[in-house]
């Protein structure tokens, strides 16, 4: 497993990083933390780069170096970094890679790879570039508030599964709200959720929603199949079968301790572009952390 945690310089990024680190500690996965520095206006980008190069000759720390140190400190606090003689075990110190990307590479406490990367530019575009280069299992991004375009872009335009972090808590204190339907994407979400719940020891609240009375039997049988699966792996669970509008029902059922897990929309890209999708609406309007499995 390889997680990408994407952060900016804001407070909610710190919380996102803590949640991402918590997940990685439990899952023993590889982790890349991507700090996306706000882009300098194109008018003056060359000049800004020249100034940054000049700074390297001086005994002052750049913003990138300070951010990398802060991120490393948080990872050390979380017990994620392997320490040798009281110092972090470093594969390589911060260095500039191709196309303005800076990277620092550490070893994790379970031997996994921990990378801190810095890019400049638009956050969605940076994530896209990153996911094109490396095969990530999950992208973790903090969402600053309601109605954010960022949430829609991340869910709609990134290829790996996405965890949109809102009001984060300690990983172990979450319950999973697994939202299911008969779609292939939902079944993929079910598979992912069961494996994750098993690894994290997380209880699951199963939610099957149907819009019309004649769909109730289908929803019941889906819930029963999933219940059997959860029981087989000994995962604590509850079953909820509800009728109503999907988005509204999920938002109504979600409690503060819930991590909402759902599949991606099966609508076409063009349909989603104009009319949105259930995961996007949950990500935008809800107050819970949302995992969209792709």
């Amino acid at each position: 497993m390889h997680l990408l945690v994407c952060i900016g310089g804001e407070q909610y990024s710190r919380d996102t990083l803590r949640l991402g680190s918590g997940l990685v500690r439990v899952l023993k996965a590889d982790l890349t933390i991507l700090y996306v520095r706000p882009a300098v206006s194109q008018h003056f980008r060359t000049e800004a780069r020249l100034a940054r190069e000049k700074l390297q000759d001086w005994p002052v720390e750049s913003e990138d170096a300070l951010m990398m140190k802060a991120v490393q400190r948080i990872m050390e606090e979380q017990g994620l970094v392997r320490m040798v003689d009281g110092k972090p075990d470093v594969q390589h110190l911060p260095r500039v890679e191709k196309a303005g990307l800076a990277e620092c590479h550490l070893y994790g406490s379970a031997g996994q790879d921990l990378r801190i990367r810095v890019r400049e530019g638009d956050i969605v575009q940076s994530i896209r570039r990153e996911t094109l280069e490396v095969d990530y299992t999950l992208v973790v991004v903090g969402a600053p508030g309601h109605g954010s375009r960022l949430v829609r872009h991340i869910i709609q335009y990134t290829d790996p599964s996405v965890l949109i972090v809102k009001n984060p808590r300690d990983v172990q204190s979450y319950r999973m709200l697994l939202c299911l339907s008969h779609s292939a994407a939902a079944l993929k979400a079910q598979d992912f959720a069961v494996r994750t719940a098993l690894l994290l020891g997380m209880p699951v609240d199963l939610l099957c929603i149907h819009s019309y009375p004649w769909e109730e039997n289908g929803a019941m049988s889906l819930a029963e199949d999933t219940r059997r699966l959860l029981k087989r792996f000994d995962i604590p669970h509850t079953i909820r079968v509800r009728r109503g509008a999907v988005v509204r029902t999920i938002l109504k059922e979600a409690q503060p301790e819930h991590l909402i897990v759902m599949g991606t929309s099966e609508r076409s890209s063009i349909y989603q572009f104009f009319f949105g999708s259930v995961p996007v609406e949950i990500g935008r309007r809800g107050k819970n952390t949302v995992l969209v499995v792709k």
């Binding site: 300098v40 206006s41 003056f44 000049e47 800004a48 940054r52 700074l55 750049s62 300070l66």
Partner: peptide, 12 residues
């Protein structure tokens, strides 16, 4: 201005 952007780029 270019100067303002360069100084802003220091992050300080």
């Amino acid at each position: 201005s270019p100067a303002c952007t360069i100084v802003y780029g220091s992050g300080m």
